[in-house]
């Protein structure tokens, strides 16, 4: 509740409120690590329990997964650039880079939905077996996070366009950048332990 405001440093850290929000969000991300790792654990334990549904080795295609991975990796990079521009005080560049980020994210989602539809078409559904339940829940939870992130970022961009960069808006922007990078971290593990291992074993 302190009204003291620092005069230097990135805007998002200048108020105590900003510092506390960012710290709180880091702690939330730590909780998210546990949330996703529980899903990973479920997936790992239920691995191979496909019953009559197709096996992952049959369905996973390296091409589409690599494209999705590069889309998300690039979006994480452009999101980083957006924050870099924010710290230089450039609202316009920030918005442009964020729009690119969100477009890449939407592209990722498009491929993921295509992939899901394809699998369901092949008979691998949420209901078909324990393995596929775990697969859809793990990747779907990540996809849901990306969807929410896109919606959240759009709301934020409206606020930044209206209000410019203040300690409050830049704090919000910084937090969503953390969220977006974090989703990339999660995807790296999904890419590795779901898709690559699924195709190897």
């Amino acid at each position: 509740m302190s009204a003291h405001e620092l005069k230097t440093g990135p805007l998002e850290y200048r108020t105590q409120e900003g510092q506390m929000s960012i710290m709180g969000f880091w702690i939330f991300l730590a909780a998210e690590i546990v949330l996703f790792s529980t899903l990973f654990a479920t997936y790992a334990v239920l691995f191979g329990r496909t019953v009559d549904a197709p096996t992952p080795g049959h369905l996973f295609e390296p091409g589409i997964v690599l494209v999705m991975t590069f889309l998300l990796l690039t979006s994480s990079f452009t999101c980083g650039i957006a924050v870099h521009q924010m710290r230089k005080g450039s609202v316009k560049a920030l918005i442009i880079w964020m729009v690119i980020t969100l477009a890449l994210g939407a592209g990722f989602l498009g491929f993921e939905i295509y992939e899901f539809v394809h699998y369901v078409h092949e008979g691998a559904t949420m209901q078909s077996s324990a393995f596929w339940s775990a697969f859809f829940t793990l990747t779907g939870t990540h996809g849901l996070h990306v969807t929410l992130g896109i919606g959240w970022a759009v709301l934020l961009l409206i606020q930044i366009a209206k209000r410019g960069l203040t300690p409050v808006t830049s704090r919000k922007m910084f937090i969503i950048s953390l969220y977006w990078h974090f989703l990339d971290v999660v995807w790296i593990f999904i890419f590795t332990s779901v898709y690559l291992i699924g195709m190897v074993v």
């Binding site: 239920l46 496909t50 019953v51 078909s128 596929w132 339940s133 859809f136």
Partner: peptide
Amino acid sequence: SQFFTLTGEGL
């Protein structure tokens, strides 16, 4: 879904 069921190889 089949996470904890007896059908579908749930556990």
